[in-house]
């Protein structure tokens, strides 16, 4: 919206460029950031040996990569870095990272993720919530 408006004053432009236009990675804080992987170590987790997240068809992920590029929608949305694109051809699912939110299932344009809850109380256990 704002991009279509008239030229802005220099001050405004400075304000804008100092703010939202940076990519998150270019922020000075990045060196202190804790990775999602490390954050997940804080959680109590019991593994269900049977994966509760399964890609139905890897060839659909390949098609998705050709259309949407990488990272694919599931990899962008997943807050726990469950999905990784490996060797330019395979969607590798680290289901033991999963925080059970459901975002990947809804965002997948091809409904290509079989999404269940872990069994028997396994998976993530929150202590605060």
């Amino acid at each position: 919206m704002s991009d279509q408006t008239q030229p802005k004053g220099a001050q405004q432009q400075a304000l804008r460029s100092a703010s939202f236009q940076q990519s998150p990675d270019s922020q000075s804080e990045s060196s202190q950031k804790i990775s999602v992987e490390e954050k997940l170590y804080l959680a109590k987790y019991k593994l269900d040996e049977r994966p509760h997240l399964v890609i139905y068809d890897q060839s659909i992920c390949l098609k998705c990569e050709q259309i949407n590029g990488t990272p694919q929608p599931c990899m962008i949305l997943c807050p726990a870095d469950v999905y990784k694109w490996e060797d330019g051809k395979r969607n590798v699912v680290s289901y033991d990272n999963c925080v059970e939110c459901g975002a990947c299932r809804i965002i997948c344009p091809y409904a290509n993720i079989e999404w269940k809850y872990p069994r028997w109380g396994r998976g993530l256990s929150l202590r605060y919530g």
Partner: peptide, 8 residues
């Protein structure tokens, strides 16, 4: 930091 979580 004590906990990280996500929800829809």
């Amino acid at each position: 930091l004590r906990e990280y979580s996500a929800h829809l």
